[in-house]
């Protein structure tokens, strides 16, 4: 089934219909044939308007392209692509509204002309105000073509989701500690640390200071020492997600502020090269490092919700 159309009068349309009714009344009253001619013209313009607006709306599909990541307070672009499947008829003056769940439609993209069998892309800029899931439910495709008298629209379902990361503030951290702390290191691979990992044949470009001479003599070829990467311990940041039984009025805003603070510090540590783990009071842990990137951690912080006093331990969302 094709989605139903909605028809709405524009301001010009109301005037036009008013004039048409006035001319009609005058025509019936005076039997002036010229007024009948005018009435016929005005009514036929209304009919033609309906047909052409329908033609313009038909055969269109809309695709949304969301950015890979978005953050509170930082604008991002959402691309809207409209494809006109009609073979010969272009679509004019198409307006696409991106509909989001539980939010008023405030973002529109306008397409002046979409040629047949081609697409047009437009983008709108949005600055999210809250972290979490931004759920897109569909589009409202509207046009006031051809005369601007009526607005005809239809809605299509097109779900989409964008996770809005919490805002991050610049944080100055103290200089990193060098050296190895026993008991908490994680070997993460080859590097230039002090630990001995193994031997390998020398290749062009390797540092000759790492040649294991004794083994090289035994093998008959230059053999290199393989070293392990210097490791650092995880930086653990804690986040209290348990809502007290009678929370104060500003508990919610404080919670958000804490999330923002944790995110900011996590990003600062990550930039410094540290491994970061965020542990919540409910027991969930999210980790991030330079190799994996900040996404898993920020995603977790975007989606974390406060829990009740006896809430179950929240599982770490998949990165």
């Amino acid at each position: 089934m094709r989605p139903p159309r909605r028809l709405k009068f524009t301001r010009e349309g109301k005037f036009f219909v008013g004039i048409t009714l006035g001319v009609g009344f005058a025509a019936i009253n005076t039997a002036n044939n010229l007024l009948y001619l005018l009435l016929g013209l005005l009514l036929s313009l209304i009919v033609v308007s309906g047909i052409m607006s329908e033609l313009s709306l038909q055969g269109l599909t809309v695709v949304r392209r969301l950015p890979s990541r978005a953050q509170v307070g930082r604008p991002h672009l959402v691309e809207i692509e409209v494809f006109n499947h009609k073979r010969r008829v272009p679509s004019y003056a198409i307006e696409v509204e991106d509909l989001r769940a539980r939010q008023p439609a405030d973002k529109r993209c306008f397409f002046l002309k979409i040629s047949p069998k081609s697409a047009q892309v437009a983008a709108y800029r949005r600055t999210p105000l809250r972290r979490g899931r931004d759920v897109h439910v569909g589009f409202r495709i509207a046009t006031r073509f051809p005369f601007g008298l009526f607005e005809k629209s239809r809605e299509v379902t097109a779900p989409g989701e964008l996770v809005i990361y919490p805002a991050v503030d610049p944080v100055q951290l103290p200089p990193a500690q060098m050296g190895h702390v026993p008991g908490s290191a994680h070997v993460v691979g080859r590097g230039h640390g002090e630990d001995f990992l193994g031997l390998k044949l020398m290749r062009t470009g390797d540092d000759p200071r790492d040649i294991h001479w004794r083994k090289s003599a035994a093998v008959g070829q230059p053999v290199m020492r393989e070293r392990a990467r210097e490791t650092q311990p995880d930086i653990v940041l804690t986040l209290d997600t348990v809502r007290p039984r009678d929370p104060p009025d500003d508990w919610g805003s404080n919670f958000e502020r804490r999330i923002r603070d944790v995110a900011s510090r996590a990003m600062a540590h990550l930039k410094r090269g540290d491994c970061v783990a965020v542990r919540t009071s409910s027991g969930a842990v999210a980790r991030a490092n330079r190799i994996v990137g900040a996404d898993p951690l920020l995603r977790y912080l975007a989606l974390v919700e406060p829990q009740g006093p006896h809430g179950a331990i929240a599982s770490v969302p998949a990165s």
């Binding site: 313009l45 691309e79 003056a93 993209c109 306008f110 437009a122 051809p146 005369f147 601007g148």
Partner: peptide
Amino acid sequence: VAPGALVLSHLRREVEGNYRQGARDRTG
């Protein structure tokens, strides 16, 4: 003449109304 004039007038109005209110192209 009226259909063409009305259509173009409407398109111009849409262009001026939409694009001057901050609509952006694909590059933002």
